[in-house]
């Protein structure tokens, strides 16, 4: 029996539900309603409304990716320094929130951030001025960091755990202090995990419409919101597909980054 035949169902499934659908997006993206070829859908990214949405999306996802990295790296380092046995349970504790419905968790942030919500309640009992938190770009960034932080922690943690303790010991032995060990040994060796984490946070943050909807109110439009509305409310699928193609350029860039820096798939999250 030829084992390769076992991939038959998988290949048919992937062609039917991954390749053809993506081809359809390209097809819709470069045609108009009547079916004739046009680049108008793609070019419409340069209109003020769309360009502004894309720019804001890039900005917010960039900031939240950076924040995730800043928060996750020390966390992964601490988890590594605590060893595997204890580490594995703590790691579970850190990914446990992912089991909760992500819409509900984000909605709970609404409750915390609202004008007369929990945080402002605490501030007023401390006789501090209340803050305008909800429906701001800051609230969206918080939602992104909150939802995607585990996707940054896990790949970095996994890569750090694979580094032999004796490699760190050897660097110490050769005279490196803790900071030099971090800069010269741990950081370069954890690049695959960092790159994988960055793409795993950046892509969903760039394309989200849910977080902006729940925490940003109706006034802040991200590119994800624009595309979603074209499909559900505006029903201009051609325009939505064209804008998706623009988004896919950024996704392709991050896939290329992974291919370059994580050749052996060391930086996987799962």
């Amino acid at each position: 029996m030829n084992k390769k035949l076992l991939s038959g169902p998988y290949l048919m499934w992937m062609i039917g539900f991954i390749i053809i659908p993506l081809a359809l997006i390209v097809l819709y993206g470069v045609t108009d309603r009547s079916g004739s070829f046009t680049l108008a859908n793609i070019i419409s990214i340069t209109t003020e409304e769309h360009a502004k949405a894309l720019w804001l999306s890039l900005l917010l996802s960039f900031v939240s990716t950076a924040l995730c990295l800043i928060l996750a790296y020390p966390l992964a380092m601490i988890l590594r320094s605590r060893g595997i046995g204890q580490g594995s349970f703590i790691v579970f504790i850190f990914i446990l929130p992912m089991w909760m419905n992500f819409l509900l968790r984000t909605l709970a942030w609404q409750t915390l951030l609202e004008r007369n919500g929990v945080i402002n309640g605490v501030l007023s009992t401390l006789r501090l001025p209340s803050l305008n938190l909800i429906n701001t770009p800051g609230a969206i960034i918080l939602g992104m960091v909150y939802n995607f932080l585990p996707f940054m922690v896990l790949p970095i943690y996994n890569v750090l755990m694979k580094i032999d303790d004796n490699v760190v010991n050897a660097a110490r032995d050769l005279g490196a202090n803790s900071f030099q060990v971090l800069i010269r040994i741990l950081l370069p060796l954890s690049i695959p995990g960092v790159v994988s984490g960055i793409t795993m946070v950046f892509v969903p943050a760039l394309t989200t419409f849910v977080i902006s909807n729940l925490l940003g109110g109706s006034k802040i439009l991200l590119i994800g919101n624009v595309i979603e509305q074209e499909f559900t409310k505006g029903s201009n699928w051609n325009l939505g597909s064209g804008l998706s193609l623009v988004l896919m350029v950024f996704i392709l860039i991050s896939m290329a980054l992974i291919a370059k820096y994580d050749k052996n798939g060391e930086g996987t999250a799962f």
């Binding site: 490699v167 110490r172 032995d173 005279g175 202090n177 060796l189």
Partner: peptide, 20 residues
Amino acid sequence: LPPNKRQLNTVFQKYALFNH
């Protein structure tokens, strides 16, 4: 005294070379 301040060096069992 931490290892980086000691005047001796170690050759590790599985070499522990820096792959990068």
